[in-house]
Simulated assay, not measured.
Amino acid sequence: MNDLPEPSTIRVFVALAPPDEAKDELAEALWAATAGYPRLRWNRIEDWHVTLAFLGELPATAVPPLRSALAGLAASHAALHLGLRGGGHFDGRLLWSGIDGDLDGLHRLAADVRDVVGSCGIAFNERPLRPHLTLARARRDDPTSVPEVAAALAGFAGRPWRAERLHLVGSNVGRGPGPIRYRDLEAWRLGAG
């Protein structure tokens, strides 16, 4: 029995998630890297996502208005045709796979998500959208060469897939030891309305 109270704050972001087949294809391409670079902090495949807006730590009371607003937004946007392609890194520490396909549609959806979040009175650090899927991070005390792994992914081109659902995701960052864990707070089918 869990008698712990629900947290008063939650770390939240809005994202798209590739289907399992697309993630499995990329995982297969990464197999040698995951074996060859065990000191990297590899994200769990089930947590792979494409962030549209990172909202940070929010009061739990901010989530219900977001749910309603994002549901309406999702209904007004069509599914997107995307793909995973290549690899790269940010600052030699964060390894990612690139996103290919309907990037104009992806940018429009992200802009609309950010507008909706702002209309709910939620202030967040708006960084320019650089569509990617985060795969791993180098530990601060480990000079592992993320650029080498990124270069090995340069020729990767996954099969196209449809992004059909918009996800409001919460994470446990800052809530104890262990790896980051994500959970859908809610998800909506794009173009369902």
Rank of each mutant, 00 (worst) to 15 (best):
R108V: 08
F124T: 06
L40N: 04
R39D: 15
G121Q: 06
L26F: 12
Y37A: 11
G101Y: 06
S68K: 10
R39F: 03
R93N: 10
H49D: 07
V116G: 00
R44I: 01
I99L: 11
A78V: 01
W96H: 14
L103I: 06
G86I: 03
V113A: 10
P64K: 07
E21M: 03
P64A: 11
P18S: 06
A33Q: 15
I99R: 00
F13V: 11
A62W: 02
A79Y: 00
P7W: 10
F124Q: 03
L58E: 14
G88W: 13
S8C: 13
R140G: 13
A71P: 00
L66Q: 10
G83T: 01
C120P: 01
G86F: 11
P65E: 13
L30A: 07
L52C: 05
L16W: 03
L135S: 02
F90N: 09
I99C: 13
P59F: 11
L26Q: 09
L40E: 03
N43C: 08
S119L: 12
L4C: 05
H132I: 00
E6A: 08
E46P: 00
L58N: 08
D112I: 06
A53C: 13
A136R: 03
V50N: 14
G86E: 14
A110V: 02
L70E: 14
A29W: 04
V146T: 03
L30S: 05
A17Q: 15
A110N: 02
G88V: 06
A71H: 14
E6S: 11
H81C: 12
R127Y: 02
L40W: 15
T9H: 15
L66W: 07
T61E: 15
A32I: 00
A78T: 08
S145I: 00
A74E: 02
